[in-house]
Write a protein that binds this DNA or RNA. Structure first.
Length: 557
RNA sequence: GGCCCCAUCGUCUAGUCCGGUCAGGACGCCAGGUUCUCAUCCUGGAAACAGGGGUUCGAAUCCCCUUGGGGUCACCA
């Protein structure tokens, strides 16, 4: 049976590159009625935590990718080839490691990281390629035994046999790594944990993984894995290496891009201490701030990163699946778009769902060349998906989206208002976030609205004869006595437009829009009025009329 | 730098394996149009085989070189 696995390291959320890998692994397995497993690669004790592992699970579930074996999470996981955390499989690795030492295919080495570091630096200075010099192989067995007995720190290195290595890859074809390219790499660290290379080989073999689908950054590692498999007497799985996903500027899409953007903004604005947010609190606590500035390896937690971005006035690039979720993208759209990065069904069809992918996926249609991530196309797909759904579904999704991340909209609107809010925004929204970012004015206290004399505002309110302001003043008493439903409101506006503005609805609607929203953009005007309700509409028109003098002055200066 | 991978419109791609349609689609862009704003929506348009050598009657397609891009060289995964 065909078995694939996705094996992330638990360093936070799932990023889009990983999501695509998981998706292709999933599709390959499902297409062949095989099994898809999830395994947490947490052999690096410094960067592992169990909660981060679960972040992946949430992201995968949200995308609609389920797994047959792996960590148990909301109905997924389980299985009898576990445990699925590498940190819980130590005895397995130890056993296989011992076998290699016994057969002379691996050996202990006692150099400290510092010693190796300086050797590398030397080689670099002499413009030589560095390779471990196998010094430990010259140690006699008594010395080795004595050093181990006294508890001296040591690693286990794999003794790389001579000869070229041929990698057979389903998407790249045959790749030959020349003889002498590999050094005797470490397979067990001084802390007793296996390195990635060793753990991955043992796990894939013991878990019955038949197809390894992973990013192309692992291509060079494959040679090492092949060697370990031979030494251990395991079969080689079938490999497929996926091209990388890049930012539009050609750089590799990385988790660090968010920190990169923030650092650039901090530098540009010349900040030395954490800036304060609206409430006067530091956007980032100072201990973390110092650490963050000190080392480019340190990443801000999501919370801090978002509040810092807000203060700095920059947009954080979406990198993780969770970022796209928060930005209001639909999971089926992200899946669809990701599928198209490096794979295509072979005809002109571009929009499809998971089921279509499952039914049609095959490795021989996977592209070798790297792809840039194009947010504009993703956005267009998201718009299509939103437009294609019915009103109830859009309302439901928007409601859930607000509950998760923007509860203030629910606090300031009753159920009927929110339903109208959803309906009025449905066809004009590219994301679930759009209605909220363009509709802040709906939930803002009337007194906080400010009108500024931008060009379109001047045009709508101050210019012309009669000026928009004049029409607005005439409209106010009409609305005061108007029945509060779409038809009546429309009639009132139309009547005024017919009488005073040459039947041009916009001449009345636009001043009205500016008065109630503070800006020139809103949902259709009658919807906007109904969502706000009579009281707020009348109040805002009044406030806007009061601002006429200062606005006129501002426009003149 | 060593080794490895990649190369069709700005972007994602079809076509490449099994040489032979004005190189097709989508997003974006540009120009018109519809609309109470924005977003939609409709119509039209510009836009690519990286370069150079071969092989061949014929090359986007096969071969070689060059150039460009990327990956990797840890007691990270």
């Amino acid at each position: 049976m065909l078995r694939t696995r996705f094996a992330p390291s638990p360093t936070g959320h799932l990023h889009v590159g990983g999501a695509r890998t998981a998706l292709f692994c999933w599709a390959l397995a499902r297409h062949a009625d095989g099994r898809f497993l999830l395994r947490i690669e947490d052999t690096d004790r410094k960067r592992s935590s169990e909660s981060a592992g679960l972040g992946f699970c949430d992201d995968l579930k949200w995308l609609g990718i389920d797994w047959d074996e792996g960590p148990e999470h909301e109905g997924c996981g389980g299985g009898d080839t576990g445990p699925y955390w590498q940190s819980k499989r130590l005895d397995l690795y130890t056993r296989h490691l011992a076998g290699l030492v016994e057969s002379g295919q691996a050996y202990p080495a006692f150099e400290t990281p510092e010693e190796l570091q300086s050797q590398r630096a030397e080689a670099r200075k002499a413009k030589r390629a560095y390779k471990y010099n196998r010094a430990a192989l010259d140690l006699d067995s008594e010395t080795v035994a004595a050093w181990i007995a006294e508890g001296r720190d040591h690693v286990l290195r794999f003794k790389v046999p001579a000869g070229e290595i041929r990698i057979s890859d389903e998407v790249l074809g045959e790749i030959v790594v020349p003889d002498g390219e590999l050094e005797d790499f470490v397979i067990r660290k001084a802390d007793g944990f296996p390195t990635y290379h060793f753990a991955v080989v043992v796990d894939d073999a013991l878990m019955g993984v038949t197809h390894v689908v992973r990013g192309q950054e692992h291509l060079n590692n494959t040679a090492k894995h092949l060697l370990i498999q031979d030494a251990l007497g395991f079969e080689h799985p079938i490999y497929a290496h996926l091209s990388l996903i890049f930012n539009p500027d050609g750089s590799k899409m990385s988790k660090r891009d968010k920190d990169k953007a923030l650092r650039a903004a901090v530098k540009e604005q010349g900040l030395e201490s954490p800036p304060l947010d609206d409430s006067g609190a530091a956007a980032v606590d100072s201990a973390q701030w110092d650490r963050w500035l000190e080392s480019k390896d340190h990443q801000l937690d999501l919370e801090s990163a978002m509040s810092l971005a807000a203060v700095l006035g920059i947009e954080l690039p979406e990198i993780d699946v969770d970022d796209f979720r928060r930005a209001g993208y639909l999971p089926e759209v992200l899946i669809n778009y990701l599928s198209l990065l490096g794979w295509s069904p072979g005809d002109d069809r571009e929009q499809f769902d998971l089921e279509f992918l499952r039914a049609n996926f095959s490795l021989d249609r996977v592209l070798r060349s790297p792809a840039k991530f194009d947010r504009a196309k993703l956005l267009a797909f998201n718009l299509d998906a939103i437009q294609a759904m019915d009103a109830d579904r859009f309302h439901g999704l928007l409601l859930e989206f607000c509950r998760n991340w923007h509860p203030e909209f629910l606090e300031h609107m009753d159920e009927a208002q929110f339903r109208l809010f959803a309906a009025a925004n449905h066809e004009r929204s590219k994301t679930l976030l759009d209605p909220l970012s363009s509709g802040r004015f709906f939930i803002e206290p009337c007194e906080q609205l400010r009108w500024t004399a931008t060009k379109p505002v001047r045009k709508a309110l101050l210019n012309g004869d009669p000026a928009g302001y004049d029409l607005l003043a005439e409209l106010l008493p009409v609305l005061e006595s108007c029945a509060w439903d779409a038809e009546s409101l429309e009639h009132a506006v139309a009547a005024l437009a017919a009488a005073r503005a040459g039947d041009k609805i916009g001449k009345v609607a636009q001043p009205l829009r500016i008065a109630v929203s503070g800006g020139t953009v809103s949902p259709p005007i009658y919807d906007t009025l109904l969502i706000l309700g009579r009281e707020r509409v009348l109040r805002r028109i009044g406030l806007c009329l009061e601002a006429r003098a200062s606005l006129t002055a501002e426009a003149a200066s």
